[in-house]
Amino acid sequence: MISLITGGSGSGKSAFAEKRILEYANEKRIYIATMHPYDAEAFAKVARHQRMRKKKGFETIECYTDLKNISLMRADDILLECLSNLTANELFEENGAKEKAAEQIMEGIRKLSYLSENLVIVSNEIFSDGIEYDRETEHYIEVLAQVNREVAALADEVIEVVYGIPVYHKRR
């Protein structure tokens, strides 16, 4: 089962994704963290998410780039959070995949789907503010949108979380 969970900033998508994966109630649960903290605000954000996951039995693996080569044994359930950070890392970090970002992220996601019974993937709705950004940022938006579409095609369900409320765009 592959679930894509998306939503805007502060929409409750992370809490929803965690709830989703806990419903499977399996033994081995892996959380793949993609946010590369570089300032106080990012550290606070990571800490907030760690607090949310506390006592939920996740093993956390950090993966900022190169998801397809993540060293990972089989797991029952995997929660990957999130595509927006992973895409930014692949595009903007020194050792990122750059122009192959979308392709390589998808390769990584297919690998995770083979390695797990249930895969829950969190992404981000960043496409509706009507602002035109610089070329680099526009390119980022376009690549993330492409990754979202490809993951949605692969997924069994696509859920947009709106203030904690699940809106189903695809269910099998």
Partner: peptide
């Protein structure tokens, strides 16, 4: 308005506002 569906703003105050609206609305929606 749903204001959280764009690129994360550069300005820290704008970021705080977006998240505050989102989280407050999530509590109220529950």
């Amino acid at each position: 308005n749903e204001i959280g569906c764009g690129i994360v703003p550069m300005d820290a105050g704008e970021r705080r506002w977006r998240e505050l609206v989102g989280r407050t609305m999530t509590h109220l929606a529950a």
